[in-house]
Amino acid sequence: MNKPSAIEEILTNRTRPKSPPAIQASATFAWRALLRIRYVPEQLFDVTVFPIIFLLMFTYLFGGAISGSTGEYLNFVLPGILVMTVSMITMYTGLDLNKDIEKGVFDRFRSLPIWQPSVLVGALLVDTLRYLIASTIMVTLGYILGFRPEAGFSGVIMGVVILLLFSFSLSWIWTMLGIIVRSEKALMGISMMFLFPLTFLSSVFVDPSTMPNWLQKFVDINPITFVVDAVRTLIHGTGTNGDVMIVIYISIALIAIFGPLTMYFFKNK
């Protein structure tokens, strides 16, 4: 039996290296999330197939009825569906975390002397990458189908950037729920309950001025509407700083509220 001595040999070092800075810790958690995708590439199903199905479905289903032609509708609806799809996908962030926490490896993370939010920030960074994949696929497909952004390529990039900022911020809500809700199914239910009305009762599909008054009031204060409007105006070049600033404020507010809350529940689970 040579094993105990082999183990004794590698135990010589009793001083720990300095704890990694927050960025290294976050990057390490992001690396872990990327490795997991490599082992289970099906994880990317939602960000690849969803955008395709959504775009095809809604463009050809509503296009003729709403705008008279699918081509015209595509230009109007693509920014909306883009926001809707990515917002929907953010929900998976919470689901993954919920599954992950149940397994117990989080106990080890939480007992390490690291900047604690890095566990979640790292995962969210990779999720943001997933949102970027979804956005790229949708815009590319849109382009093939005849979508022409009036503000050109740079408008699209700015639109996607603002959407990613919003999605990253929105994810903190699901992250928090992922920590406190006990089962994956319950979490799915809660997420859907919010996401469905919020995405549909917005300016994603139709111009709000066609809606009854009481509904318009809701649509006007719906954060998704603001995001859709900002992205739409950026993509089609009619954007003002005001549209974009509102989304930035919403994003900062989401992080300011749900970031600390998430960390509170994370530490005190």
């Binding site: 872990r32 490795l35 997991r36 082992y39 289970v40 397994k103 117990g104 490896v105 106990d107 080890r108 007992s111």
Partner: peptide, 13 residues
């Protein structure tokens, strides 16, 4: 250091 009762490493990796 803590070695928990269940899965104290990432099973997927």
């Amino acid at each position: 250091s803590l070695t928990g009762q269940f899965a104290s490493v990432d099973e997927e990796l």
